[in-house]
Design a protein around this nucleic acid. Structure first.
Lengths: 149, 149
DNA sequence: CCCCATCCTCACGATTCAATAGGAATTGCT
DNA sequence: AGCAATTCCTATTGAATCGTGAGGATGGGG
């Protein structure tokens, strides 16, 4: 489940991606444009900054900018920072594996095997999509999106 | 995120799938075999029964059995009952859609479009796998599992 | 009628989530 | 130097959810 923190963070990143590179955005501006509580967004952008996704500048004329080109920022990475691992269950995570304490034989745990598949499917989507693509998809009236039921 | 309720429920279902059809299992037996708190499993199986996935019988010789063949039970359905919709965000859910209150223009929301893709990827895995397949995967030393990175 | 096992309701502590509060630190401008 | 703008930090709060346990009601089998 994507939390509001994750959702707000992604929206903020999309907002930044829509800017001329180097042109800073204010927290208050991003918050207002996306209906996000300002103070909450404040802490979210702080985390994204600590993680190296955005740069910040204080004082007049300050604000936030993307630290890298939107083409180089993968959506899955952002979500991991804000909401934790993608895997539905920790014993199926690759970036932050942890054993289930109730599982005696992990190799024959059907749940885990299934969740490895699920994680793989999720990661395939989220780790291949970049911020630039996400923004483009939003602008182009969903043309890019092609379902394969 | 799969909660413990979901995990325990799936494990219990796998346990039942490993039985001769019609042969009932006791809650205490399932709980012990899978390291699940008995009382908790009690309520979980109750929900699965209300949802029509398992049948129950009280008294001596009672217990739980699958309501249908394990080939006909899709894992995604079980998870939806126990943990709610698969979609990472409600505005991207097909089974229980709900609009985001902070989103003014849903059609151009990059986050939602991306999450529709993510939901699709997840559902493709979970709604196509049956309980029988999950059980088989666990027994066959993960042979069935084939990653496509 | 008596065991056995499911069924039901309630309650609880812990954790996480979402948001708010209040102010400290830094920068730019004049 | 002084002021205003803006990020940065820490703590708190209220609400919801999660995981679990207690106690007993219900109903079938013998």
């Amino acid at each position: 489940m994507l939390t509001k923190k994750g959702k707000y963070g992604l929206k903020a990143m999309v907002h930044l991606a829509a800017r001329e590179p180097g042109e800073p955005s204010l927290v208050s501006e991003i918050a207002e444009a996306n209906n996000i509580p300002k103070k909450f967004l404040d802490t979210i952008l702080g985390e994204l900054r600590n993680a190296g996704f955005v740069n910040s500048k204080k004082g007049k004329g300050g604000g936030y900018t993307l630290a890298r080109s939107a083409h180089l920022i993968r959506v899955g990475h952002i979500i991991r920072i804000l909401d934790g691992p993608l895997a539905p269950i920790q014993c199926a995570s690759k970036t932050s594996y942890r054993r289930c304490d109730d599982c005696t034989d992990e190799r024959h745990c059907g749940v885990r095997i299934l969740m490895l598949e699920a994680r793989e499917a999720l990661a395939t989507v989220l780790d291949n999509r970049t911020l630039a693509e996400m923004r483009a998809a939003a602008q182009d009236d969903e043309l890019i999106l092609s379902y394969v039921i």
